[in-house]
């Protein structure tokens, strides 16, 4: 088992790693040989995007263990400036070991989903979204020091899917031709329906891990573009 990064942030402002975070880490670990088989070849230099990095635990895990390979540009993104600070610190606390011989850059970005990202650039996308069903997706707090950052980490509007759907509906513009996305869902998001819908739009969708966590059932799905030969 790969080591979990050390982390320590201000959990009044930044999402504290929980069952969902750990399920995502386990999923990525179980996908390790698949990811290496795609990205280790030919010294390919991948772009790794994590949306909603929070404490930074997921990006740090990838970076620390040379996933998907020992080089690449890691772009952790969050709308919460405290999360960006926390991610920088978590990355610093957990450097990759020397024997992995990594050449990597980690550049955190303050951004809403992928709004400022050049299209079709992302090779590995990871997202543990705000997935809890709620009246609405909350607005950004007016000031950095105001309350409300944690609500943004959790509340996903109708069916808990408003933020995730924005991403899924645009996924074909985000991923590179090699691109793979891992996204976390809870049962109330009805992930099987999403799977069918995305398969209907030409995606290959696989369930990677599923686990009961308290009263929630969490799952991680993998999305890949189906290659079409015209």
């Amino acid at each position: 088992m790969l080591a979990t990064p050390l982390y320590n942030c201000d959990y009044d402002r930044v999402y504290e790693p929980a069952e969902d975070s750990f399920l995502l880490l386990d999923s990525l670990e179980s996908e390790l040989s698949f990811l290496r088989s795609i990205f280790e070849k030919d010294n390919y230099f991948p772009i790794i995007l994590e949306i909603g990095c929070g404490s930074g635990i997921v990006t740090t895990f990838l970076h620390q263990h040379a996933i998907p390979t020992n080089k690449g540009l890691y772009l952790p993104v969050d709308i919460n400036p405290w999360a960006i600070d926390a991610t920088l610190q978590t990355i610093k606390k957990n450097p990759p070991t020397k024997d992995l011989q990594t050449t990597t850059i980690v550049d955190p970005l303050l951004m809403d989903l992928v709004a400022g990202l050049k299209s079709n650039s992302v090779d590995l996308l990871v997202f543990n979204p705000p997935y809890v069903p709620a009246e609405a997706v909350p607005n950004l707090p007016p000031g950095t020091n105001d309350e409300g950052w944690l609500d943004l980490a959790l509340l996903g509007g109708e069916d808990g899917l408003v933020v995730t759907n924005k991403l899924l509906n645009n996924l074909h513009n985000i991923l590179s031709p090699k691109g793979v996305a891992y996204i976390l869902f809870c049962a109330r998001n009805k992930p099987q329906e999403i799977q069918l819908r995305m398969e209907g739009h030409g995606w290959k969708v696989d369930l990677i891990e599923k686990r009961k966590a308290g009263w929630e059932v969490l799952s991680v799905y993998k999305f890949q573009k189906i290659k079409t030969n015209f």
């Binding site: 772009i47 540009l73 772009l75 850059i105 550049d107 970005l109 951004m111 809403d112 709004a115 400022g116 990202l117 050049k118 650039s121």
Partner: peptide, 10 residues
């Protein structure tokens, strides 16, 4: 600098 190659106006 490398990251500038991936940023556009949001």
């Amino acid at each position: 600098f490398i990251t500038t190659n991936f940023l556009k106006c949001p």
